[in-house]
Design a protein around this nucleic acid. Sequence first.
DNA 1: ACGCCCGTCTGACATTTGTCACCGTCAGCT
DNA 2: AGCTGACGGTGACAAATGTCAGACGGGCGT
Lengths: 201, 201
Amino acid sequence: MVRLLLADDQELIRSALAALLALEADFEVVATVGRGDEVVAAARSHHPDVALLDIDMPGIDGLAAAGVLAQEVPGCKALILTTFGRPGYLRRAMESGARGFVVKDAPPERLADAIRRVAAGERVVDPALAADTLASGASPLTARERDVLVAARPGATVAEIAARLFLTEGTVRNYLSAAIAKAGARNRAEAVRRADEQGWL
Amino acid sequence: MVRLLLADDQELIRSALAALLALEADFEVVATVGRGDEVVAAARSHHPDVALLDIDMPGIDGLAAAGVLAQEVPGCKALILTTFGRPGYLRRAMESGARGFVVKDAPPERLADAIRRVAAGERVVDPALAADTLASGASPLTARERDVLVAARPGATVAEIAARLFLTEGTVRNYLSAAIAKAGARNRAEAVRRADEQGWL
DNA sequence: ACGCCCGTCTGACATTTGTCACCGTCAGCT
DNA sequence: AGCTGACGGTGACAAATGTCAGACGGGCGT
């Protein structure tokens, strides 16, 4: 019997996944949470074998939760379950100690299979996504370039970014320029989009 | 017994929702599809009472599918089920003939309740979202302004937008300027984000 | 200890973008 | 007929954005 923890911010999806997984005779959902920062506490009290973590969650995201989980509750293996199969996400997931990575448009048997493998100690990733990730390499952005892109994301002006990061406008422009070049884009908006799609932010 | 059609592009979510709804004794899932342009055909062959439609789908989106469904298969009532409760989405949903609107972070009982009400001929919307929608009013953008914003979305330059829409650069700048003003933004990127959040695009 | 690369930071310069005033056409409304 | 508003366009100007050369300091190899 595999004991499961479900973490997803959308209550309907959480319940629906619980219903789906309950159809498998060897699965038991022992806890469900809607925030990343509730994962560890729930894992401590209910002793799940596998934690199914969505990435998009309030509090801390699923990738960060996987990292904390690996440190604090090593008996519980993290399996990332997400909408977007972005190379950077998979990379960060594996680096932070997750044991598997499944995208939400996979067929349900694949999820069940992944859970059983992870519970048995294996690591599980979509081969196609793994290939993409290896091919695309790690993020080429420096820490500062990443900061500036993140701050630019909502459509902020250079002055606003500079104020938020305590930098000169000239410096901000320079980082943006570097980030634009590295993303292969021709302006700020495209750079933000590209970096986001790669999971670099 | 309420006969249901499920349309969502993510297979795992589709299966999970089917499992969840199957728990209710008076529901029967008679068909599931992963593309908007398969909805009508499935509705014709399986005669569902209610069609649960996600908005984000390949082919045509759920809102357009609801419109076609209302025309072609009037016996099947459309219920929009989506991640984002954007005012413009709700407005378009109701205008295109959908009978209900539920967001994906609602509790599962609310979905079941909504389905039963829609099946019974009622209209169902989240009161808070309905208030937002009425307060925000319809989109202030003209058709052309909307086109230009959509073309600008991926981070295109003025020249690229002009080429795609067969317009002069000056004209594109004029429309962008007007759209920026109407969105209450201070640059293109922010205008795109704002308009997107409102469901104007 | 020495150069060397890399990341951080900055100001100067060219280009792009956003704003404004204005012209003409067309369709719908009164 | 006259008015209004959407559409397409031009030209000019100010402001924001993107590019470049370069300064400074920390780590790394030899």
